[in-house]
Design a binder for these strands. Structure first.
Lengths: 193, 193
DNA sequence: GTCTATAGGTGGATAGAC
DNA sequence: GTCTATCCACCTATAGAC
């Protein structure tokens, strides 16, 4: 196979790379950065992930999978759609409190410098977010815990965009509360009262 | 002096660099890219802008100045605050239709890799956006062309964050209408009826 | 102001020993 | 799996001729 990225070492590489992409961007980190932190060599990293593009693609699929699991947990634990939206917002806030940007929000800004497989995976992440939100919004509207006008898809896209943008800007101010006040306001507007 | 960036050539350099930053990010372009497009040499660029940081700082101040002028024009031409917000949103949409991200939104994602003077300038851009929005929102609320609950500052921050995020994501889909539907929805929510 | 040439460093990636 | 050594392309930046 081209890449051996399935070991414990591979996971540690992914952990470090993930943090570096979320803080510095895809073009702002290098194999040398990871090697220094892992106290190994660049050559060794290339054994686990043959190319930076392969590493990047794996990062996105792992991040998406973790996000999917987190949303599944929210669905399982919280029957109220309004409260599920608050939990969704808190997933973003948790990332921000680690001084990180959403991995895919960061990659969206690097979008036109990314290899094609990574571009498609980034869009896929947003699509999955939107789909979860549409389900949640429609169910909440039916149950009257949420209210909003127009297609759920439009509201979902507004939420994803606003949350990503609020993270991006809050990070520049080192102030997570900037995200939280924006997120609270947007979710409150959907409250079915 | 350290830099001679005030000639017509300097302006052409800034035009090219601006587009490259808006599409590829600060770490995604080089003096070589500019030189190739301007059909000159990297050394010649260094005469106009001694360092990449100096070029970057100048880019932000010029972008901010142009934005300020655009907002002044909106203020002069449009007495209705709701319509001024629509014009504000359209300034973003115009950038996006050129397949570009907002310069400072892009730099916000590169934030922790930027030299300190650039970081401060990026925050300054957002501050000025927010201040203009606060003035507009408060005036619209007084005149009853706008309505919203809570501090204008919170609404202003929500708008900046949402517009930046909507640009970021719309660009990944190559679909400016994704921005426009989000922006329309957010502005419509403020309509004083 | 623009050029050639080059310095000194880092990028991603590979060969081959162990 | 990890290492040393190395390749070559590219990076920002400077020296000095024109």
């Amino acid at each position: 196979m081209a890449t051996h990225g399935n070991s414990k070492t591979a996971d540690r590489i992914l952990d470090i790379a993930e943090r570096l992409v979320q803080t510095q961007g895809y073009n702002g980190f290098s194999y040398a950065d990871i090697a220094a932190e892992l106290k190994t060599t660049k050559a060794s990293l290339h054994y686990h992930f043959a190319t930076k593009a392969a590493l990047g693609t794996r990062l996105i699929s792992r991040y998406g999978e973790n996000f999917r699991r987190a949303l599944e947990a929210v669905d399982g634990e919280e029957p109220n759609a309004l409260r599920r939206l608050r939990r969704y917002a808190d997933l973003y806030a948790q990332v921000l409190r680690k001084d990180r940007m959403c991995l895919c929000g960061m990659l969206a800004s690097d979008f036109f410098t990314l290899p094609k497989p990574m571009r498609e995976a980034v869009r896929g992440f947003f699509d999955k977010n939107e789909a979860w939100l549409v389900r949640t919004l429609e169910e909440g509207r039916r149950a009257r815990t949420l209210q909003f006008a127009g297609p759920a898809e439009e509201v979902a896209r507004t939420l994803v965009a606003s949350f990503e943008g609020a993270m991006l800007i809050a990070r520049s101010y080192g102030d997570a509360s900037r995200f939280e006040s924006v997120a609270s306001r947007l979710v409150a507007q959907l409250d079915g009262k």
